[in-house]
Simulated scan of single mutants.
Amino acid sequence: MTTAVSAPEETDNPFALTHLDALESEAVHIFREVAGEFERPVILFSGGKDSIVMLHLALKAFAPAPPPFGLLHVDTGHNFPEVLRFRDETVAEHGLRLFVASVQEYIDAGTLRERPDGTRNPLQTLPLLEALGEHRFDAVFGGGRRDEEKARAKERVFSLRDEFGGWDPRRQRPELWQLYNGRHAPGEHVRVFPLSNWTELDVWQYIAREDIALPSIYYAHHREVFSRSGMWLAPGEWGGPADGERVEKRLVRYRTVGDMSCTGAVESDADTVEKVITEIAASRLTERGATRADDKLSEAAMEDRKREGYF
């Protein structure tokens, strides 16, 4: 019989923080620092597990008052329906304000063009940057973690972006002793990553501890998928499957969610949070490395997009 891997607990010292307590405390501190330093922060919220955990932490940081900022979603138009439903239910449950930047609107206006491969993740940058400018957001919380991908491993918790939204690793500031520098010139803004020091396993252990609800696609379910480049992708209007790609029903779950055209499922029977934790503890691939086709476009795909203004 398999057992879930749980976070280590300190029992000798009743005042010692557990591993998850320390991560939670750090994240709560970051949310409060931003609320004190910036005028118009916003949480980038996709309805994925990291942004859900991030919102949970923000609710804790300011309870019993609501968080002093809203949510921003860059909607590619190819999002999983289950995730969009969860997003809207979450906003309604907590009475939050949701801003939506639509990639489809930019395509309809002719500002952006569809890519030949149907992937819209790389098209999110312009709608994101224009939404930040339109609403004058000066700090943007993102759910990026350093364990996800090598470009994200270079990030600071406070990541300075220039007036074009671009990221330059040489301009990132030291953050000794958890001291964060939010200074920025007019037109610049700061991306803030409260989950930087978390791992995928930490996130799931925290979800289990806090009993946080997630969209159903994070757990094993039967779904029609087809194989492309070693990943199980969902068929859709974005162009899949192509000729020669056969749709079949598999028992799968998603480790991360994004544009349906580039987010792959993994075969899994993990239908509970405990089973997911056990599965992740045995995995040697990050969720982006295993399931995100947009990160495989080139060796430096993520870093290139970050320099252009992507998260």
Results as ranks from 00 to 15, higher is better:
Ala265Thr: 00
Leu251Met: 14
Trp232Ile: 00
Arg223Glu: 05
Glu224Pro: 07
Arg246Ile: 12
Gly239Gln: 01
Arg255Glu: 14
Gly230Ile: 04
Trp232Thr: 01
Ala265Trp: 10
Ala234Lys: 11
Gly239Met: 08
Trp232Ala: 06
Gly240Met: 10
Met231Val: 03
Ala220Ile: 05
Leu251Thr: 15
Gly240Glu: 00
Pro241Met: 03
Arg228Asp: 01
Phe226Arg: 00
Arg250Gln: 07
Ser268Arg: 07
Cys262Ala: 14
Glu248Lys: 10
Ser229Phe: 15
Glu224Gln: 12
Glu248Trp: 09
Thr256Pro: 02
Asp259His: 09
Gly258Trp: 01
Met260Phe: 03
Tyr219Thr: 01
Arg246Lys: 15
Asp243Glu: 11
Gly240Ser: 07
Asp259Leu: 06
Thr263Pro: 04
Val225Gly: 04
Tyr254Ser: 06
Tyr219Ile: 05
Ala242Lys: 15
Asp259Trp: 04
Ala265Met: 00
Pro235Gly: 00
Gly236Thr: 01
Gly230Asn: 06
Gly264Arg: 07
Ser229Gln: 15
Val257Arg: 08
Thr263Asn: 03
Ala220Glu: 00
Cys262Trp: 01
Thr263Ile: 07
Asp269Thr: 15
Phe226Gln: 02
Thr256His: 08
Thr256Trp: 11
His221Lys: 02
Ser227Asn: 14
Ala220Tyr: 10
Arg253His: 09
Thr263Ser: 09
Gly244Arg: 14
Val247Ser: 05
Met231Ile: 08
Glu237Asp: 15
Met260Trp: 02
Gly239Glu: 03
Val225Asn: 05
Val247Glu: 04
Ala234Arg: 13
Gly230Val: 03
Arg223Phe: 02
Arg255Gln: 14
Val225Arg: 10
Arg253Cys: 02
Ala234Gly: 03
Gly230Met: 04
Arg246Asp: 09
Arg246Gln: 12
Pro235Cys: 00
Ala242Gly: 09
Gly258Thr: 11
Glu267Asp: 07
Pro241Asp: 01
Leu233Lys: 05
Pro241Gln: 06
Gly264Phe: 04
Leu233Ile: 04
Glu224Gly: 13
Glu248Asp: 09
Ala242Val: 10
Leu233Ala: 05
His222Tyr: 11
Pro241Tyr: 02
